[in-house]
Design a protein around this nucleic acid. Structure first.
Lengths: 110, 110
DNA sequence: AAGTATTATCGTATATTTGCGATAATAGAT
DNA sequence: ATCTATTATCGCAAATATACGATAATACTT
């Protein structure tokens, strides 16, 4: 049991799900919020702001990076992150193409 | 370990995370897509479309309902679901208030 | 060369999610 | 009253996610 059936869905569905999964934890939303507020890329400042251990924050950053939501480069002994806005634009576009258009057409039914 | 630290984040962060968590699985996105396309509320038609067992689909529907993304009413021996567009509007608004505004201000940095 | 500060990774424990089959619950049809 | 079709729930197994401390890796400073 618990076979992974995710591959059986469309690429768009998988892509959308991967994006939303990446931001499905308050810590990662908080990280993105910090990155969005400060145009400058940040590193361990995030650790100071979040109520989590350094290793945990690093793990969340890794997930965001692997999902393509943020960019990260090494800058000496520290790491610099910033939001990948293109990924957000793609999400907005995909999300709207699935739901937004139909909003007006649909009335509540039950 | 694995203490639940979610409560330590802001209400808005938690609310956003709850919404995105609900749509963080391709099956649930597929369900929402079906509901969006057919204005009529659907029930077991979803089971026919998805590559999952009936009990699994029912579980996904329950999650979507509990997260407030869909409404469901019992209609005889079958259940009728439809999208709660207000929840989607709230999500769009919250999401944009966190990120959208800052798009133009921010340039890529790393 | 040794020390320091910052960040990433490893190992581990626990919690949650995902998925199914079996079974219960519901209400219409016979 | 019994059968049938539809949906929800239960119980379980496996996979993933969450979190931490300890440790490794990196590069600057002394």
């Amino acid at each position: 049991m618990a076979f992974n059936k995710k591959e059986e869905f469309s690429a768009k569905e998988q892509s959308l799900a991967a994006f939303t999964k990446a931001i499905s934890h308050p810590a990662r939303i908080a990280i993105l919020n910090v990155l969005a507020k400060k145009n400058e890329c940040i590193c361990g400042e995030i650790v100071d702001v979040l109520p989590l251990a350094q290793s945990t924050v690093s793990q969340h950053l890794k997930e965001l990076k692997m999902a393509g939501l943020i960019n990260g480069t090494v800058d000496g002994p520290r790491s610099c992150y910033c939001i990948n806005w293109k990924a957000f634009e793609k999400f907005n576009s995909d999300f709207n193409s699935l739901f937004e258009k139909l909003k007006e057409v649909n009335a509540k039914c039950c």
